[in-house]
């Protein structure tokens, strides 16, 4: 197929949305934390425990819904470490986030043989999946149907969250206070807004959403858990928050870019390019985007306050 035709191919864009959903869910969580002034880089780890919790409980219960709920629980539990360490104890969120990511990798790799007696990959017989919801009528539209209206329930959740978080952040008292807390905690405190409460809620929200991201990742297509299966998506979500300046529309844009890169890389694979090279495409695209959007991240350039 010529390139132009490929770019308008509905199946390409359908795989863009599929690649996009988990990253978008995690990135929205990261965005809420960023707005509350907590630098959240443990998305990768939370996504991983979410995926594990989802597969484990879906296997035990036979229900994707229970699996997804378990994913949320597991990731929220992990997020509480960050909330406690970084908010209550004023620890460094970057160092904590890294430790949480390592912890997540360790604990899932530990539990896999411990609970299910397998290593590397766990694919339960008759694996439970989150079914796709074909929206009546809409899913039959040409192009838009397969791209936007044949998603899993969590897919719709992710897409609806974009306008919803915008509305909450910029039009409601809770959103105003959350932004205030993130920007000038002292000022918010003197007006009687408890910064810790808002930060805790933001971190927990990011845990819940990133847990869902893990569920979508594990149960969206095949119902399988593989060691380290988040494979950088959580980090891409972190970058999406930065690139999108913690604004819902910007974050969606950044996630779209990543989703497109992944789908396109996958497509290139089909045309004979080595999988080892196409795997790198999303990361290379992300790096290029970082360079193009530079000067936005001055806050992260000087980490001289970074102490454990």
């Amino acid at each position: 197929m010529p390139l132009a035709e490929q770019l308008l191919d509905a199946s390409l864009w359908a795989s863009v949305t599929r690649a996009l959903i988990p990253v978008l869910l995690a990135a929205i969580g990261g965005m809420i934390c960023e707005r509350a002034g907590v630098f959240q880089i443990s998305l990768e780890g939370m996504m991983l425990v979410g995926a594990f919790g989802a597969v484990a409980m879906a296997h035990v219960s036979g229900s994707a819904t229970i699996g997804s709920a378990a994913a949320v629980m597991a990731a929220v539990l992990l997020s509480l470490i960050l909330a406690f360490g970084a908010v209550s104890r004023d620890g460094n969120p970057i160092v904590l986030g890294i430790a949480i990511n390592i912890l997540a990798l360790g604990i899932t790799s530990f539990l896999l043989p411990q609970l299910f007696g397998v290593r590397g990959t766990f694919q339960p017989e008759g694996g439970v999946r989150i079914p796709r919801l074909l929206l009546p009528g809409l899913s039959e539209l040409p192009f838009l149907g397969p791209v936007l209206f044949s998603l899993s329930f969590l897919g719709y959740v992710a897409l609806v969250l974009v306008p919803l978080t915008w509305f909450v952040l910029f039009r409601t008292p809770v959103g105003l206070r959350l932004r205030g807390v993130g920007e000038r905690p002292m000022a918010a405190e003197t007006l009687g807004v408890s910064t810790n409460t808002y930060k805790y809620l933001a971190v927990i929200a990011s845990g819940a959403l990133t847990g869902l991201a893990g569920a979508q990742l594990a149960l969206g297509n095949v119902g399988v858990f593989a060691e380290n299966m988040s494979s950088g998506r959580g980090w891409i979500a972190v970058v999406a928050v930065l690139l999108g300046r913690a604004h819902p529309v910007g974050v969606l844009g950044a996630c779209l870019l990543f989703g497109f890169a992944e789908a396109f890389g996958f497509r290139l694979q089909g045309q004979g390019l080595a999988v080892q090279i196409t795997d790198a495409v999303p990361f290379v695209v992300t790096l290029i985007a970082l360079v193009l959007a530079r000067k936005r991240f001055t806050r992260l350039l000087d980490l001289s306050e970074t102490k454990i």
Binding site: I81, F84, N92, L96, L103, L105, G106, S109, Q114, I308
Partner: peptide
């Protein structure tokens, strides 16, 4: 029969505990 990855879990927990507790004295 306890899986060796427990070592990694403990290592990460050391850092979590250290960061959360150190911060107190520091603050």
């Amino acid at each position: 029969g306890v899986s060796w990855q427990l070592a990694q879990v403990i290592q990460a927990l050391v850092i979590v505990a250290l960061v959360s507790r150190f911060a107190v004295t520091w603050k």
